[in-house]
Design a protein around this nucleic acid. Sequence first.
DNA 1: GCCATATACTGCATGTTGCAGTATATGAGG
DNA 2: CCTCATATACTGCAACATGCAGTATATGGC
Lengths: 205, 205
Amino acid sequence: MPQTRNAYPLLGLLNLRSWSTYELAQQVQRSLHWFWPTAERRLYDEPKLLVELGLAEATEEFTGRRARREYRITRAGRRALRLWINEPSAPRTCEFEALAKVFFADAGSIHQLESVIDGIAAESIDRIKQLGEMLEAEAPFPKRAHVSVLAMQLQLEQEEGVLHWSQWARTQIKQWRSTKDPGDWPTEALRAELAARAHPRAPGE
Amino acid sequence: MPQTRNAYPLLGLLNLRSWSTYELAQQVQRSLHWFWPTAERRLYDEPKLLVELGLAEATEEFTGRRARREYRITRAGRRALRLWINEPSAPRTCEFEALAKVFFADAGSIHQLESVIDGIAAESIDRIKQLGEMLEAEAPFPKRAHVSVLAMQLQLEQEEGVLHWSQWARTQIKQWRSTKDPGDWPTEALRAELAARAHPRAPGE
DNA sequence: GCCATATACTGCATGTTGCAGTATATGAGG
DNA sequence: CCTCATATACTGCAACATGCAGTATATGGC
């Protein structure tokens, strides 16, 4: 079966309709990218690999002299897609450079930390806006609205969570003397509160 | 300045103390991996690149005949780290195979979807547990507890968000006839609710 | 006609990953 | 003491992913 990381997500899109490569690239940017980021460069080679494996078919079409490859899923492709759902999923990973900067904030100044946090806020506001636009636009696949809404619920909540955290963090660091000295900020109490949340215990325990 | 993606996060760790490569690899797994996932294989080459750039220094030490390289940050390294904090951060990305499966759930069955969601729940429970253990263990860098707690607040909240979503999603799909037919599930009302959340409007607007 | 942008790609150097392997040290158990 | 599993400490390498720059043709506005 497919060896590359993008094979199944791409089969997922091909299962919705046929696409030209350029259209695929655009659709990946619009929807898949939120939870399956990949370089556009790959999107021109990967469908060809699917064709080699019999999971997709390609036709070449022309606009004047400009060629375009259009891909369509095969029955074997649909079957592979269905089986993929059964397989254990890879652990979730998140690449968050700004949070790394927060984690190493004591290497810089409070002003720098403020900027980083503001950047985090701005990004989540922008992503929430983008999600909003997608939710309000005419749905490209109306019959799939229910699964789309199910997934977007999580996407939106994650973005809201990041935004709320950034607002909270902004208020908290105001109490710090410096990035190296939190002054009277209740570090220990917050640590204990987080620990309790991570280990829910019965009242008597 | 450094060309590789791991340079600055590694400098961040080197700024805390000196490390052998193996120790670095372990520490990356413990802390950085949550928001800066990288392959262990890289951790043996990258510090050498930092040394070449004058951002770190290495000493070779021995346990009997077994060699070990220990790395320590330089002043230039500290400066580079501080400047990194000022640079625009790369957009956050999240690789979530299970959510991709949810997104393409209509290619499979309700039972498959239930399994995927249960897997999501199990993973977040495990990660919350791990965070709890970290919060309760003796802090490796007590003087940095405040920045650590600040970052972990976001980590924990994201995990809780995923867990809550999975619980909610589990109740919702119970109402679906199939992954292709949500029956009377209020798709449109939920879509509208999400849209409203994504576009906060004043009451008169 | 010109030009900016869209559509539709590809070559390629560089960076990243996963895996399998090597070498030495350590400690438990027989 | 010996054996063996695991830890410590790496490296080689094939395959894959990425970013970037480039090419070619189509489109539409001025």
